[in-house]
């Protein structure tokens, strides 16, 4: 079922958290809502779920306006950051909860309920834990129980609020790829809120980037990464150096001794240029040609991070492949070349 928000606004007191937000998630899609904390992404998710009422705007599921429906009637599966498991119930009873509270007429028989719960526990690979209590599980296991519980009521849409935020990096990676596989199996329309760009880019077909209660840009991970629409998007995705200045007569930006030729910038305008650390190149140069000195070298494992201090200018971070380590050392004189640059008005 598709999910749609139309002109949704919401504020807490005088503080607006959502400003006229519209979005659409197609049936069967997996979309990530990405943004820094306080950008309004969780509020948007809660409005879609019916946990929060918007001040203005509509929520439409599969073409049907559900704005007036409470969370219990929207048929959403919601997964919370801190699992929100029922601690007085076993894993089995947690998953069975949504089936047990159905009206008598549509409640499955005990036998069908058991079969269904065990099937779901098999899906999340926790069949052996059915009789444990939540407090006896690890964080990753708890979140899988929470997911099984949400799936038990066969929701038309699955909404996940920072589902892996409370887990450590390794478990997070595992659950991420497992969730992707699960989605490819079940095709439930899924919207996942995250502040972790790697998570969003890896997991989702489409990423919606939010900032300050608004949608900055939406598109495929590649579109967002390759063609950021605003300075905010460019600076939020990837590891970026930002330099600011006035464009000179020859169309270049001068930062200390470093001159960055810009492709199409009007001379005399103030610009803000985003340069990804991976899009920069360092070349060893003779004294007169060099514009910067390597001030620090850090081995990050798969890549090496160099900090180059521009003469009379800022320090720029550059990421190079491992082999570069051999030729560049601290104190070396270099020039910096930008392969890709994104220019925005300052």
């Amino acid at each position: 079922m598709s999910i749609e928000a139309v002109g949704v606004s919401k504020s807490y007191g005088a503080h607006p958290v959502l400003r006229d937000v519209s979005l659409k998630v197609d049936d069967g899609g997996l979309v990530a809502l990405l943004g820094p904390s306080g950008s309004g992404k969780t509020s948007l998710l809660r409005v879609l779920a019916g946990l929060e009422a918007p001040d203005a705007g509509r929520v439409v599921f599969g073409g049907r306006d559900v704005s007036r429906h409470g969370v219990a009637d929207r048929g959403v599966g919601f997964v919370f950051q801190h699992y929100a498991l029922f601690r007085e119930m076993t894993v089995f009873e947690n998953v069975a909860f949504g089936l047990r509270v159905k009206p008598r007429a549509v409640r499955p028989s005990e036998e069908r309920l058991r079969r269904k719960v065990h099937e779901l526990l098999g899906l999340v690979q926790l069949e052996s834990m059915a009789n444990r209590y939540p407090s006896q599980l690890s964080g990753g296991q708890r979140q899988r129980v929470a997911l099984a519980r949400a799936l038990a009521v066969e929701p038309a849409v699955l909404l996940l609020d920072e589902p892996f935020g409370a887990l450590d990096t390794k478990v997070r990676r595992q659950l991420r790829s497992w969730l992707r596989t699960l989605h490819d199996e079940l095709h439930v329309t899924t919207l996942i809120v995250t502040h972790d760009q790697e998570e969003a880019l890896e997991l989702a077909d489409r990423v919606i980037l939010m900032n300050d209660g608004r949608i900055e840009q939406q598109g495929s991970p590649t579109e967002l990464y390759e063609a950021p629409a605003t300075a905010f998007v460019a600076e939020f995705l990837g590891d970026v150096n930002v330099i600011e200045g006035t464009v000179e007569g020859d169309g270049a930006l001068a930062v200390g001794r470093w001159r960055v030729p810009l492709l199409d910038a009007a001379p005399g305008s103030r610009v803000r240029v985003a340069l990804r650390t991976a899009d920069l190149e360092l070349l060893v140069a003779e004294d007169d040609d060099a514009c910067a000195t390597i001030s620090r070298v850090a081995d990050l494992g798969e890549k090496i991070q160099f900090e180059a201090t521009v003469d009379g200018g800022p320090t720029v971070r550059v990421h190079l492949a491992r082999r570069a380590l051999l030729t560049l050392e601290r104190g070396a004189r270099v020039t910096i070349e930008a392969r890709v640059q994104r220019v925005y008005p300052a």
Binding site: A49, L51, G70, V71, A72, D73, V76, G77, F78, F80, Q81, H82, A84, L85, F86, R87, E88, M89, F97, G98, R100, V101, K102, A146, R149, A150, A152, V153
Partner: peptide
């Protein structure tokens, strides 16, 4: 009482009375 547990019960279709009796009261 954590708020999200109540919200979880509601999102699974529980009425306020069901959420109270099955989830909140046991706590």
């Amino acid at each position: 009482l954590p708020r999200d547990v109540e919200e979880a019960a509601a999102s699974l279709g529980a009425s306020p009375a069901q959420a109270f009796r099955r989830v909140l009261l046991p706590s």
